[in-house]
């Protein structure tokens, strides 16, 4: 089965010469949640805007559901829903009328039952006759999602859905996204919150400076780059690492009271047993043990730094 979104060598240069996208190629699988992670100004929004038709690309191609977004834009765009980063809504409109407008704009015939389902799903049904300006920030964001879903898209782009949103609402948003995925909607979201990508994405793409640095299954990415550390707290500081413990994997902390051992959780042998027996052989007394796993955040910071270097 072909991928639902195929982006091939997409470039975007603005008239002032700034290159927002430097040849991005990305395939998105049907039904997955892909998180695009990147610092501000990385090109996340430009990528989404170009796929959705808000900005035009300099070169490259995009296909959605096999339809080219330029030559067959009607079929391509009919499949796409977009939730923008900014809360762009007409303040004096009622919720129901703005959602109905969105559906019509995408050429779908009036279907109040479908809209009711969407509004109920987003806990907006009670507010359907409220003016948008009377809603809270969180509710407005839900209205944006309702508008994006009004024409029953197969692919949903969420541009920083939880930027500036409180923790509770963020969790709600994640639930909404999970619910949409269950309905078979393919979801692409951009975020600079790593915990968000970690919590809900199936795959993660990292963008910086207009380039896609990597795209990988979240679990694989975590496993591949996720090193674990064992910190051995000693009762007394040592002058230097005992010879028996000297290796690439072991370092001594600055205050010389901790041994830090880095290992790969997926390796056949972690070497912990040997380490601990070596510690005993060297005559060191340990007072505590602690393990930690590097988070996506560290992986991400590492990648972006590498790219900048």
């Amino acid at each position: 089965m072909p991928d639902i979104v195929e982006i091939h060598n997409l470039r975007k240069a603005y008239s002032d010469g700034f290159e927002a996208l430097k040849g991005v190629s990305l395939n998105i699988k049907k039904g997955e949640i892909l998180a695009l992670l990147g610092p501000n100004g990385a090109g996340k929004t430009t990528l989404i805007s170009t796929v959705c038709g808000i900005t035009t690309s300099t070169s490259g191609s995009v296909k959605v559901g096999g339809h080219d977004t330029l030559t067959d834009y009607r079929a391509a765009r009919a499949m796409i829903g977009l939730v923008p980063q900014e809360i762009n809504l007409e303040p004096f409109e009622k919720v129901i009328s703005t959602v109905r407008f969105s559906r019509g704009l995408f050429g779908k015939p009036k279907d109040d039952a479908a809209l009711e389902k969407i509004l109920r799903q987003l806990s907006l049904w009670d507010k359907k006759d409220s003016q948008i300006r009377a809603l809270s920030g969180g509710m407005k964001r839900r209205v944006l999602i309702a508008k994006a879903l009004a024409h029953e898209p197969r692919v949903l782009f969420l541009d920083e859905p939880t930027a500036g949103v409180d923790v509770e609402l963020r969790r709600d948003m994640w639930e909404i996204v999970a619910g949409l995925k269950a309905d078979g909607v393919t979801i692409i979201l951009t975020t600079h919150y790593i915990e968000e990508a970690e919590a809900i994405a199936d795959r993660i793409g990292v963008i910086a400076h207009g380039e896609l640095l990597l795209v990988e299954d979240k679990d694989k990415l975590m496993a591949r780059m996720g090193k674990k550390q064992l910190v051995v707290q000693l009762t007394k500081p040592v002058d230097a690492l005992p010879d028996i413990l000297v290796s690439d994997a072991v370092t001594l902390s600055a205050d010389r009271t901790k041994l830090i051992y880095t290992y790969d959780t997926r390796a056949e042998r972690t070497g912990i047993t040997k380490l601990l027996s070596d510690v005993a052989t060297a005559g060191l007394v340990l007072s505590d043990l602690e393990t930690s796993q590097s988070s996506l955040e560290e992986i991400f910071v590492g990648l972006v730094k590498e790219d900048a270097a």
């Binding site: 959705c52 808000i54 834009y73 977009l82 923008p84 762009n88 007409e90 995408f106 050429g107």
Partner: peptide, 17 residues
């Protein structure tokens, strides 16, 4: 102009029209 001003113009641009 109003959709341009408040930003809802994105919807017009991304719609299959």
């Amino acid at each position: 102009y109003f959709p341009k001003f408040i930003g809802t113009v994105f919807e017009l641009l991304s719609a299959p029209i």
